[in-house]
């Protein structure tokens, strides 16, 4: 008997298996997101936007309405939808290049304006889709196609600390956290809280997810997890960075 894998209800079965590389973290982030959508029972209200980057492969991933936008522009598209239709739950899904490089002005300003949307950013330390170039999140000394001798922080700066940056800008009511695909249950909880924050119209919500890119890292399963759990978490601290203050406080 064929074993039917356990998929979130909001996943679109017809488009599975998904299109990410084997061992890619994107699938796990979207699993956590699918479960969060299911548990909050918001499938009817979600509008999902995906960036250009490997996130574009999610354009038919869920049984929710989806629009694929441009590289870095998912945040403004979802902002535009939310402003026009405040009753929708708008999710902007992007990579670290999309969110921290080409679209950083949109992330910063959406946070500043406390847009009532949820941004989810997959940090895989490189530009995955274009073949493994340096991203704003590439670790010091890390080799990529455009840093073949390792990232020189003197020349290219230090990796972006996204949730910390957003937390520093965003007002009270915003939610920011960093999860990891190494702990999907925790990541799901962060995503749930982020979406809950939008549901309660408290403010901007932002979750970065540490994620593996075995294809461009050229790592096997063991080395992928080692890099994710050891190297990345040394620099990118997993946990909640900013949570809305409780009303009674």
């Amino acid at each position: 008997m064929a074993i039917v894998p356990n998929m979130p209800r909001s996943w679109r079965v017809e488009t599975k298996p998904h299109k990410f590389c084997p061992g890619c973290g994107h699938g796990l982030v979207l699993k956590a997101l699918g479960e969060a959508i299911d548990e909050l029972d918001i499938q009817d209200r979600v509008v999902f936007g995906c960036d250009i980057g490997c996130s574009l492969l999610a354009w038919d991933f869920f049984n929710v309405d989806i629009v694929q936008t441009h590289h870095g522009r998912t945040t403004p598209v979802m902002t535009g939808i939310k402003r026009a239709r405040p009753d929708r739950i708008c999710i902007a899904y992007m990579g670290d290049g999309g969110g921290y490089a080409i679209g950083s002005q949109h992330l910063v300003n959406a946070a500043t304006r406390n847009e009532k949307i949820t941004a989810i950013l997959v940090n895989n330390c490189n530009y995955g889709m274009t073949g493994g170039q340096m991203a704003p999140t590439t670790l010091p000394e890390m080799k990529t196609e455009t840093t073949p001798y390792g990232r020189d922080v003197e020349e290219t700066g230090y990796p972006t600390q996204g949730p910390e940056m957003v937390a520093a800008i965003a007002r009270e009511g915003a939610y920011t956290a960093r999860g990891t695909v190494a702990n999907v249950r925790q990541l799901k909880n962060y995503l749930k809280k982020a979406l809950q924050n939008q549901l309660e119209e408290k403010g901007f919500s932002f979750v970065e997810a540490l994620s593996g890119c075995p294809t461009n890292w050229s790592t096997n399963a063991k080395a992928t997890w080692a890099f994710l759990e050891e190297n990345m978490t040394k620099y990118f601290k997993v946990g909640e960075v900013k949570v809305p203050v409780k009303e009674e406080e």
Partner: peptide
């Protein structure tokens, strides 16, 4: 918005929203 890139894309969003 923060720039015209965003003004253009938010306009797209507003239209997509109907």
């Amino acid at each position: 918005t923060e720039d015209e890139i965003s003004a253009g894309f938010t306009t797209c969003g507003g239209v997509l929203a109907g």
